[in-house]
Amino acid sequence: MTGVRDIVAPAMPAERLAMLRILVGAYGVIYLFARIGAIVGSTRYPAAQFEPVGLSMVLEHPLPAWVVIASLVLAIVSGVAFTLGWRYRVMGPLFAAVFLWVLCYRNSWGMPFHTENLLVLHTVVLASGPSAEAWSMDARGTALPEASRRYGWVVVAMCWATALTYFVAGWAKLSHSGLEWVTSDTLRNFIAYDNIRKAELGAGYSTLGTWMVAHAWVFPPLAAVSLTVELAAPLSVLNRRLGMIWCVAAWGFHVGVLGLMYILFHYPILGVAYASYFPVETLGRRILARVRR
């Protein structure tokens, strides 16, 4: 019988944790590059729009532009070190802290981008464990360590963070709307509203979602499936197969959100959010085998 210890800290290969460090770190660095315009652009918003969230709550006023740019540069440089596993004991926590700082500041202008929450939480979890003991600059010239619970707890903690964020989203629907969220027209009205907002702000909107608004019967089953995926998320850490099934369902949920509302949750859609549920080290081994050939 599986005990709690085997669920929260199973023995896992160091390469799995290393591969997760590489995937999440590289994703974070690429994401920062992709958002340079938005982050630097925030220095031009009026100060009256500043509504600090997270770490930015220590600030009473917006930062000078040079501090924002310097933070961004530090985040990118430490992110590269995090990904490569270079001086990880310092660079891992440094990247997690600066990444969190930069994203908190970027989210402090009236619009929290929930698409970034899980990415930054995963980074913090990876930085708190021994994620650079394989496939890293720090581990060059050393033998691969044996599989251990020391690596497994970090991987499962990432899964747990993923599961809890979905659970909280489902819980919010139940606590704010009760089961009416499923049985009423709430989902239909949200899809109609969100697409109007996009159309009336001169942006692209979902033609599929707006077409479906005319078919009210579709929405209660869709709402039921969405809520089930969210509330069932904590079960995904109980065993590997259940976790993989849940990942497919959650990924499908995001594909549905993209199709109906034109909202791209990039981190889960690209699969990186769910990587901790899978034996991703096989991908790394294949790449290494090809490189060495």
Partner: peptide
């Protein structure tokens, strides 16, 4: 409360009527 990176994920969770108020 909503925040970053910790949130109660309030978007799309409250009951929603058929009117859309758009600021643009």
């Amino acid at each position: 409360e909503d925040g970053f990176p910790l949130s109660n994920y309030p978007m799309f969770s409250t009951p929603k009527g058929t009117t859309a108020k758009i600021y643009h």
